[in-house]
Every structure is written in C-alpha cells, then in structure tokens.
Amino acid sequence: MNGSEKERCVLLGEYVAAHRATVRCAAKEFGISKSTVHKDLTERLPKISPQLFKSVKEVLEENKRERHIRGGIATKHKYEQQFKKAVK
C-alpha cells in the first residue's frame, strides 16, 4: 500500500467519523466508488489506525442497523412525488 492510499484511508475514516456519513455519502464526497470506500474502511484502516477504525466501525454498524428505515422513507418519498405529479 502506498502513501496516498494510506492518506485516503485516514481521510475517509475521519470524514465518516466526523459526519456520521454513509459509505455512499463518503464515496460521493471523495469521488471514488463505494467499493473502494468500503474496502478502505473495513480492511485497510484497521491496519493503519486501529483507534480511528473503532469510531468508524460504530458509524458503519449504526448505518447498517438503520438502512431498512432509510429505504422505507425513500420509497415513501418516491411514491408521494409520483402522486403529486398525477394529481396535477
């Protein structure tokens, strides 16, 4: 692993921990794929910064517990928007 990958892992970890961001949000913010973010945070970060990984892991687990709720809200919003268009 080269220096830029290590820096990216730490930057991603700090961003996720500070903003309580999802993998998808972090990927969008940094302009990289979700797969890269996930691999950096779950495989590379523990080797580079175990302390930072602990806080990132808590955020990732929280996001995983809440994802079904977010999905339901997104679906509800989608159908509300379709209903508004149909009524007009």
Rank of each mutant, 00 (worst) to 15 (best):
G13H: 04
S4R: 14
P50E: 10
R70H: 13
I32V: 15
H77L: 14
G31E: 02
P50Q: 08
A86F: 07
A21S: 12
F53P: 00
G71V: 06
L52F: 03
A26D: 05
K57E: 14
I69V: 15
K6N: 05
S33L: 01
E5N: 10
A26G: 11
F30V: 03
A18K: 13
G72R: 07
E43W: 08
G31R: 02
I32E: 02
K54W: 09
K76Y: 14
K34Y: 01
F30G: 01
F30M: 03
H38P: 00
E58I: 06
Q82E: 13
R20M: 06
G71H: 10
K85G: 00
E7F: 05
L12Q: 08
R24T: 14
H19W: 08
K34M: 07
K64A: 15
D40F: 00
F83S: 05
S4L: 13
H77S: 13
R67A: 05
A17P: 00
T22K: 03
F83L: 14
V59I: 15
A26W: 03
R24N: 11
I32T: 02
H19D: 02
L11S: 11
H19Q: 13
A86H: 06
A18E: 14
A26P: 03
V10L: 13
A21E: 03
N2P: 06
C25R: 12
L11N: 14
E7M: 07
R65Q: 12
A74K: 12
K6S: 08
E61G: 01
S49G: 02
K57Q: 14
R44N: 09
Q51N: 10
A17K: 10
S55V: 13
H77I: 13
K76A: 15
A27C: 07
K64L: 12
A74W: 02
F53D: 02
Y15C: 01
I69K: 15
K28Q: 11
V37D: 02
R65C: 03
K57P: 00
Q81F: 05
S49C: 08
V87G: 00
V87Y: 09
A17L: 02
L12I: 09
Q82V: 05
C9V: 09
K88C: 02
E5D: 13
K54M: 15
A86G: 00
R24H: 09
R65V: 08
V37I: 04
I32N: 01
E61T: 05
F53S: 14
E29R: 13
S33R: 01
K88Q: 09
E14L: 14
L45W: 06
P50V: 10
R24L: 10
A74H: 07
K6T: 10
L12C: 08
E61H: 02
V10G: 07
T36Y: 04
G13D: 05
Q51T: 15
L11Q: 15
R70Q: 10
V16S: 07
M1K: 12
R70C: 03
